[in-house]
Amino acid sequence: MSNENEEKLPLGTTSHFANMHRWLQRGLFVCLVVLVFEASMSLPGLLIWFGWPTLSMTEVCDELMKVRWSDDDAVCLVPHPLYGANEGEGRSEKSADKWGIQPRPEYKRINFRDLVKFRDERLAREAAATKLNQQQ
């Protein structure tokens, strides 16, 4: 009788471990589905964290480059050339990092919607500088 039951089981599974294998399979499928769902929500979640409704995707990328390189002129290449150089290549000496065996970023941690605040502050500085230049 046990030989008939074992013939119905998947290859490599004995009747003694069939229940454990079934629960392991279910658990692995649940983990896989959760992993796919998490991966599909990470980009929209990060965009909202950085300020997406106010900033477009390109503006978010530009602001991240400005923070990363501590350079108000840094921008993202959109669309990026297929075989072009990496963004920021040749900027390592100007980056906002302390270089060594273990590089440490010196830029502030980016909190919820900080990129919008950084952009508004930069635009206000530029407007004040333009107004000052026009007065002179």
Rank of each mutant, 00 (worst) to 15 (best):
P103K: 05
R91S: 09
N86M: 13
K98N: 14
S70D: 13
G90Q: 03
R68L: 02
P79M: 10
L77C: 03
A96E: 03
M65I: 02
Y83C: 10
C76G: 06
N86E: 08
N86R: 15
E87Y: 00
G90K: 06
S70I: 00
K98M: 07
K66D: 01
W99F: 11
V78P: 05
A96H: 08
D72E: 11
E93L: 10
V67N: 03
L64R: 07
E87G: 02
G100H: 06
S95W: 09
A96G: 00
E89A: 15
G84N: 14
K94N: 11
K66I: 09
K94T: 06
A74T: 02
G84H: 14
K66T: 01
D97R: 11
G100E: 02
K66C: 11
G84Q: 12
E87K: 03
D72H: 02
K98R: 12
W99T: 09
K66V: 14
H80L: 04
S95G: 14
S92R: 05
E89L: 15
V78T: 09
D97F: 10
R91L: 12
R68H: 01
I101M: 05
A74M: 08
S95T: 08
D71A: 08
S70E: 14
V75C: 04
D73E: 05
A74E: 04
D71R: 09
D72M: 00
Y83Q: 04
D97S: 13
C76T: 01
R68A: 00
G100N: 01
L82D: 09
G100F: 04
P81G: 05
E89H: 11
S95Q: 12
D97N: 13
D97K: 15
E87R: 00
W69T: 01
G88S: 07
W99R: 07
C76K: 03
N86V: 06
H80M: 13
Y83K: 08
A74R: 00
I101W: 04
K98Y: 07
S95A: 14
V75S: 02
D73Y: 05
E93S: 13
M65C: 15
D72P: 15
P81I: 03
I101L: 15
L82T: 12
M65R: 06
L82C: 07
P81F: 04
G90Y: 10
V67K: 01
D97G: 04
P103R: 08
A74Q: 03
P81K: 04
G84R: 08
E89P: 02
M65W: 14
G100P: 02
E89V: 14
S92C: 08
R91T: 01
